[in-house]
Design a protein around this nucleic acid. Sequence first.
RNA 1: GGCGGCAUGGCCAAGUGGUAAGGCAGGGGUCUGCAAAAUCCUUAUCCCCGGUUCAAAUCCGGGUGCCGCCUCCA
Length: 472
Amino acid sequence: MMHVFNRLTGKKEIFKSLVPNQVGMYICGMTVQDSPHIGHMRSFVTADIMRRYLEFRGSRVHHVQNFTDIDDKIIKRANDERVPYTTVADRYIREYFDVAEKLNLLRAHVYPKATEEIDAIIELIQKIIENGYGYEVDGDVFFSVEKFPKYGELSGRKTDELLTGTRFKVDPKKQSPLDFALWKSTKLNEPSWDSPFGKGRPGWHIECSAMAMKYLGETLDMHGGGLDLIFPHHENEKAQAESATGVPFVKYWVESGLLNIGGEKMSKSLGNFSPMNELLNSFSANEIRFFLISHHYRSPLEYNNERLTEAKQAFSRIENCVRNAYFYISRNGEKLEIENPEIDRIKPNNLEDFIQAMDNDFNTAIALSHIFDLVKETNIAIQSSNPAPAILEMTDSLMVMCTLLGFRFEAPRRQDPTDNIFNRMVDKTLEWRQMLRKEKNWAMADRIRDDLTSLGLIIEDHPKGSTWKWTK
RNA sequence: GGCGGCAUGGCCAAGUGGUAAGGCAGGGGUCUGCAAAAUCCUUAUCCCCGGUUCAAAUCCGGGUGCCGCCUCCA
């Protein structure tokens, strides 16, 4: 049975979707004003793992992740660059997909964009006004927070406390400082759309309420995104949706913890981030993913080079095991056909432990510890020359877990013919070296190994031959 | 000022009542022609004080320190 921590109640709850085995999941995507960084990716990797695991547990997940492609900063950037706002938005949307692909994030089923959903947004605003929660002033439309008594339910704020905390200039058009814009009337040099309230553009929060409900219905099973969105974004989304429909907007709120750098939150506004693309030059997708999921998804996570290097080392343990296991199987494959009663005894139960960990609010840290347990068992099994089928069984189990966590291993041989030639050349070289070793020509054998190392290939010798991997 | 979170071995990090997962780093051993990989051994009364309990890292109260949100942000 799966348990999920629900922000709304502040408790771990048994996970039960509205419709059995069908999960509607909305993830707040990026406001495409700049390049994605590892902080963004933390929340998307978290969502990715939730989705993979729910699917593994037998649910069909309908995954919607938006792009907010119109907002103040996008407009500003476009004006600075003297290009249409779409140029800016499209650029960063492309960058997002590029990085997402590299990180092995499963593609959402729908990626709605705010500017392509204006009709749904207008319709929702009208509904809110009709129900008495919104009001129009000179082409602007605001949400009246005091009309919605449940405001603050999600983020744990009280409206009177919020008022005392107000420390920014208040738009005089607002009836109350807490009210927020549903529709902003057009200004000079700004893109705008026609609406019953006049030309303008959607406010920040409304697009998510509109798109989420359009694609997933009035009540979603899960809604995720970064913890920094809880207030005001998610609180407002909830207020908008519920004031329009009268039913709960989201069953489980599953925000993920933030990523800090130097003790501070990494964010676009603080400027303390480097683009994900650059990070991917220094570390592999697997290593970055490992770093992100070796901590609980709801805790704050401190990012620095040392941590990443640590993750790299840790992950190489898994990689080495997989490579050595497949090598062992390939060299002892003839035994694969042999029926061996020992196999059942060796059959790992780590998968059950793994599932138990993941069932408990996606505890990837514990899940990883079970992966390491299996890695160790597999290494020992190889070292003590267990039959290949037993090793294969363990490796299969290991691969299931790794795949569930979104790790991707290079196929042993790629289809690319150049790669094939390269691989065959390395294999040949290792074969020759093996002959030299048989002749105890250590000087020559070591020289080949050293030369290959200087080219970036690390050679490891095993009883039945050698394996190689890239230095990174 | 308000709200919320966190404090576990050298470092990172799980663990919410029954006596401390896992990883990284260090030291020592085994294996190996050597190296690498692997493997074995090795380091914790869980921030402090008080309380509840047969039993607390885990619950309650107080204290100290750090962080996030309250303004655009995944």
